[in-house]
């Protein structure tokens, strides 16, 4: 059986991991290669790098970073942030990435999903969705531009459309939970899981071991993504996987 994935997410600017990662034995806390290698060693199933300062110049730096990481670290790499054309996708995939995540650009131009999927295959195209519950409409609303801009889109409807257009995977962040350590938004992932049949990665809210158990027991997601709890050593990938295994969740 295919294993549920545990995915650390790293913010990158100018080829350096921002905010750093506090591991034992990591002398350079911003070096993407050293950090990726440390996560590979811990048993991470995939790494997501998000370019948080995605100017044109930074995209070149990102490709150079991916070249270096993929020469030393042999695991799936997903790159997102500022990817807005097929040429951007091509550059990052050529550099060694396995998947590209598109967010605001997909909302602005949904045809980009199809263009990417036709050229590189659905499995390369991850549509990232940032969403928050909107009490007025009683639905999950999609936001773009790093959560700054509300759209009229309903997250579940947008997820379905993205998959129809060729998205091979969805990386869905709950803005309500992001940074709160209050657990994943299980209700969101239940709704998405019922709507689409591609892998879904849950993001936002991971704070304790039980949060990972809950999201995999309560929802059909394929992976769970987290940043700070891993970067600051509050939880290790090993802790998470041991706990999941004890509960009968298939992990690597």
């Amino acid at each position: 059986m295919i294993a549920k994935r545990i995915i650390p997410c790293l913010d990158v600017a100018a080829g350096r991991v921002k905010k750093g990662v506090n591991f034992v034995n990591l002398t350079d806390v911003g070096d993407p290669v050293a950090i990726a290698a440390a996560y590979q060693q811990q048993g991470a199933d995939e790494l997501v790098f998000l370019d948080i300062a995605a100017t044109n110049e930074h995209r070149q730096t990102m490709a150079a970073m991916v070249e270096k990481v993929s020469a030393q670290v042999f695991m799936p790499l997903t790159i997102g942030g500022g990817i807005s054309s097929v040429a951007d996708m091509q550059r990052i995939l050529r550099a060694g990435a396995d998947k590209t995540a598109i967010n605001s650009a997909a909302v602005a131009d949904p045809a980009l999903i199809t263009a990417g999927a036709e050229k590189f295959g659905n499995q390369c195209i991850v549509v990232a969705i940032d969403t928050a519950w909107d009490p007025a409409s009683q639905s999950y609303r999609v936001y773009t531009h790093g959560g700054q801009q509300a759209t009229p889109l309903d997250a579940v409807a947008w997820a379905k459309r993205a998959v129809q257009l060729g998205a091979g995977e969805l990386l869905v962040t709950s803005m309500d939970r992001d940074g709160t350590k209050a657990g994943f938004d299980d209700r969101l992932y239940q709704a998405l899981g019922a709507a689409v049949n591609v892998p879904i990665i849950a993001s936002g809210g991971a704070g304790k071991l039980a949060d990972f158990v809950d999201v995999f027991e309560q929802t059909p997601v394929d992976g769970a993504l987290a940043a700070s709890v891993f970067h600051f050593g509050e939880l290790t990938i090993g802790d998470v996987k041991r706990t999941l295994k004890e509960r009968g969740v298939v992990v690597r």
């Binding site: 295919i2 294993a3 892998p199 394929d222 992976g223 690597r252």
Partner: peptide, 11 residues
């Protein structure tokens, strides 16, 4: 009851 493509780690 499995997703296609198979995408991920399998034993």
């Amino acid at each position: 009851g499995v997703k296609v493509p198979q995408m991920g780690w399998n034993q």
